[in-house]
């Protein structure tokens, strides 16, 4: 605000990644996300075979079937456990692929500069403006039998460009920082500057981009499977919803069939969003200013705060 305080709050030139402070948001995100991941990892070991057909179709939640059964008497809880695992696998594969692709086209291009940067940036922007899901749908239509891996691959190929663009912007700004220029003048090797001086500063941003990629991948796969275009013979949240829709769960009021997969998806997405909030606040410390959390750190009475609000924005 004043010249003096700007010096205190402005990001220092050589920013090292710090661990986010454990706020309520971050804790909630980690606990929720962790619970869903645990369920996906351990759940399938504890439940019955999700495909086993029973003779009590469309039964509501009971002692035998905690989440009821499907039209053909399959246990919804068992399906949910396997579906969680399937969706998380898609998220993980796409997350890793997006990290690699976007880092390559975003960071390497921007760091190298010149025609390579122009080329990579043009390519990124083109991939960005061509809508991803229609491409995935069209490709899926040609390939009747798909593995989960293929679906993930297609989702990653159509979805990395946004992250690459964000990373390129940050790399360009880091590349021009004084301390990086100083390293260049000092004759450090180019790859070393990239690895030691630039990459560590991009870690929070990379993390948040990966989290976004995971959310979008899981959502995208769910949409695709819901349309009946997903991987064949797999269990994911999307396929569960597809079967629920086809089994007229909605018309028959079988909420225990179509609510849990969507709810779990939404919860997991929300958990990742909460984690991203915390990462965002590291990348951009301004976001924390004047929020309730930061006010708690001040020794101001509510009376003083009210007076302050009267005089300034």
């Amino acid at each position: 605000m004043t010249a003096d305080t700007v010096a205190l709050t402005a990001p220092v030139t050589r920013r090292r990644p710090t661990w986010p402070p454990l706020t309520a948001k971050l804790a909630a995100g980690l606990i929720l996300g962790g619970a869903v991941v645990l369920f996906g990892l351990l759940g399938p070991l504890l439940v019955q075979d999700p495909s086993r057909v029973g003779d009590i179709g469309l039964a509501g939640p009971s002692g035998d079937h905690l989440l009821g059964t499907t039209q053909t008497g399959q246990d919804v809880l068992a399906q949910l456990a396997y579906a969680t695992r399937g969706s998380l696998i898609v998220g993980a594969i796409v997350g890793v692929l997006t990290l690699l692709l976007s880092a390559f086209f975003g960071i390497v291009g921007a760091y190298a500069g010149g025609w390579l940067d122009e080329l990579f940036s043009l390519f990124t922007n083109i991939v960005l403006v061509i809508p991803g899901l229609p491409v995935v749908i069209v490709i899926s239509a040609y390939v009747p039998d798909k593995s989960l891996l293929l679906v993930s691959l297609v989702l990653a190929i159509t979805g990395w460009a946004g992250s690459a663009r964000v990373l390129r912007g940050s790399t360009l700004s880091l590349r021009g920082r004084d301390y990086v220029l100083a390293c260049r003048v000092a004759g450090e090797k180019r790859w070393r500057i990239l690895a030691v001086e630039i990459l560590p500063n991009l870690i929070p941003l990379l993390a948040s981009q990966v989290v976004f990629a995971v959310i979008f991948a899981i959502l995208g796969e769910a949409g695709l499977s819901y349309l009946g275009l997903g991987a064949s013979g797999s269990f994911t949240w999307g396929t569960m919803l597809y079967y629920a829709q086809n089994g007229l769960a909605l018309r028959l009021g079988a909420w225990w069939w179509f609510v849990p997969p969507g709810l779990l998806l939404a919860l997991f997405g929300a958990a990742l969003s909460l984690i991203n909030f915390s990462i965002d606040e590291i990348i951009n410390p301004k976001l924390r200013s004047q929020t309730r959390a930061s006010r708690r750190g001040w020794r101001m009475s509510s009376e003083q705060l009210r007076k302050a609000k009267e005089s300034t924005l």
Binding site: L219, Y226, Q245, L250
Partner: peptide, 17 residues
Amino acid sequence: TMFQSVPYFWLALILLF
């Protein structure tokens, strides 16, 4: 933003229901 992580079609299903 939690609504953002709710899939479009699932929200649509719930609203329809």
